[in-house]
Design a protein around this nucleic acid. Structure first.
Lengths: 107, 107
DNA sequence: TACTTTATTGTATGTACTTGCTGTAAAGAT
DNA sequence: ATCTTTACAGCAAGTACATACAATAAAGTA
């Protein structure tokens, strides 16, 4: 399966289906500056379980928002980075983040 | 309960907790131009069940992103509109929407 | 009296999401 | 031979999200 978008009623719906989910935004955000390995992501996205990290990374990959690059080494090494489409989302996530920061202070 | 944000690990997390969910983005979006009654919202957000609409509206209200105004009439009349905080999210949702539209064409 | 309209609420049921925990491969170091 | 490291996979279990369907209040109209 290429991705799991069901049937979007509108573009807003579609976009939220693609970057919704508990960790997708955060993962995209920490990848904004380049390549991160699985373990680095795990440390960067505090609180995520390995299971969820793997699962979410797979979804983002199937959705073509990130790229997974495997190095044939032992112990294994896998690097993740944003695709061009994924990079386009960074400004929005940045805005959301600013809004969130402001709100967190207000409360 | 004022809202149901658990413990945000970062601002991105926080923001997604507040506008995540299957219908929140769409509801905020259709409210961008002013006031809508419950029934109008139901027609605007195609596919939502009355139960989910009520529930989501309550969450958005508890989160202070929308305002609920009740008119003491029979049959009942209730109008919903964005708060200032809610309005701040509209540009962001608009951008997401543009991205989504573009993506929908690309696929 | 029965019917209509509007904005819900309640109960039951179902599906999707998320977590916790254990296990694996394979090379290199001790 | 055992231990370490890295990046996962599998399974059971719980929680959250979502749907379907029935029901309510209360004034106005037929």
């Amino acid at each position: 399966m290429k991705n799991k978008i069901k049937k979007a009623h509108c573009a807003v719906d579609y976009a939220f289906q693609r970057i919704g989910g508990k960790y997708k935004g955060r993962i995209l955000w920490v990848l904004r500056d380049g390549f991160l390995r699985y373990g680095e992501l795990k440390r960067a996205v505090v609180g995520i379980t390995p299971k969820m990290l793997t699962q979410t990374l797979k979804e983002l990959e199937a959705d073509e928002l990130i790229v997974r690059k495997v190095y044939l080494e032992v112990p294994p090494k896998v690097e993740y980075s944003l695709t061009d489409t994924g990079k386009e989302l960074i400004p929005f996530i940045g805005q959301m983040r600013s809004w969130g920061e402001k709100q967190m202070l207000t409360n």
